[in-house]
């Protein structure tokens, strides 16, 4: 079944024809060519595919493109204000060496931003570790990711994002 979908991705209106079974992540990667959002598993567990849909984090591998009809989607490509100015969360990941191979990073960053906002920019280490349950990293051992998120929370508040 072919269906037309239209949504806003990183502030730009986009549309396309998809099959009913097309996943949101496939629409982003294969139809729009935005390969920043990754697919790390087929069991909805790894979180590499996390994007924001209408402001909340979702696993784009477990949502149909047609379910995002009319929604505002933000991906990792939509975070940086410009080519030379990263989002405070991306900056904190760089400063704290919170990535190695980088495969999990887009999902980590998207989940982390949602986490900081839900907790009103106030996080402690235990909360961060708990909240990261849906994001798997095979490289870092998580310590530096936790550090980066704790550092980014006040930076996001200061930057008003």
């Amino acid at each position: 079944m072919t269906i037309s979908v239209a949504m806003t991705v990183n502030g730009k209106p986009v549309s396309g024809k998809v099959e009913a079974r097309t996943l949101l992540v496939q629409f982003l990667r294969e139809h729009l060519g935005m390969t920043g959002t990754h697919v790390g598993c087929d069991t909805s567990q790894c979180g590499a595919c996390v994007v924001h849909v209408d402001g909340t984090s979702v696993k784009s591998c477990t949502m149909l493109a047609v379910q995002a009809e009319g929604a505002k989607v933000t991906t990792i490509e939509g975070l940086a204000a410009s080519a030379d100015k990263l989002h405070p969360m991306q900056e904190a990941f760089r400063d704290n060496h919170a990535l190695q191979c980088g495969f999990c990073t887009p999902g980590m960053v998207m989940s982390a931003i949602d986490m900081v906002k839900r907790h009103n920019y106030q996080l402690d280490e235990t909360t961060v570790r708990h909240e990261l349950e849906g994001n798997l990293c095979r490289c870092t051992g998580y310590h530096n990711i936790v550090k980066a998120i704790l550092a980014a929370a006040p930076a996001m508040k200061a930057a008003g994002v």
Partner: peptide, 9 residues
């Protein structure tokens, strides 16, 4: 239940 993204859907 699950993780934050699962709880959001």
């Amino acid at each position: 239940i699950g993780d934050p993204a699962v709880r959001n859907r």
